[in-house]
Amino acid sequence: MTESADSTPKTAEELRADIEATRAELAETADALAAKLDVKAQAKEKVHAVGDKVTTTVTENKTPIGAIAGSAAAVFALVVVLRVRRSRKPKAKVAKALAKAEKARQKKNKKKD
């Protein structure tokens, strides 16, 4: 039997409770990581945040709607462009590494012939 820090043996029920608590923590951590990796959801959140900010600004300052809409569109476009560029960089590196490995393999095969 496993013993805790105070040298008293844990019962089977205590072990089960510990396992359930650990599973819950692991599930919470996995959900948090999945949320961080969900670029589409993050972009939607950003768009909603900008929209809320625009609505607040219009109602409080009575700023011309065209200027605010243009600014919001520019921010949205910038977010999309940055996300796309960031998502393509790793793919290019992988493709370059694969091409380099393929060249090395072909060179090795030529030496064998």
Rank of each mutant, 00 (worst) to 15 (best):
K44Q: 09
A97M: 09
R88W: 13
T2H: 11
D6N: 03
A27C: 02
K110Y: 14
A101W: 01
L37W: 10
V80T: 02
E20Y: 07
E3C: 04
D38N: 15
M1F: 08
L37G: 14
V39C: 02
T56Y: 09
V94H: 06
K110V: 06
E45F: 00
M1P: 13
T59C: 15
R23W: 01
A69P: 00
E45G: 09
A27L: 09
E28Y: 06
A72C: 01
R16L: 11
G66K: 15
R83V: 06
A27H: 03
A104K: 14
K108F: 09
H48F: 11
K44E: 13
E13C: 04
A21D: 03
D18S: 03
A35L: 10
T56Q: 15
L37Q: 15
K53E: 10
K107T: 09
S71M: 03
V39M: 04
V50M: 07
D113Y: 08
P90H: 10
T55I: 06
K53Q: 10
K110F: 14
V50H: 01
A101P: 02
E14V: 02
K107P: 01
A30W: 05
K91M: 11
E13A: 15
D6A: 01
E14C: 02
P90K: 09
V81K: 08
T55R: 15
I19K: 02
E25M: 05
L26Q: 07
T8E: 14
A5P: 03
L78N: 12
A32L: 11
S71L: 02
K111T: 04
A43V: 13
K46R: 07
A95T: 12
R86V: 06
G70F: 03
T55A: 15
V47G: 00
E13T: 13
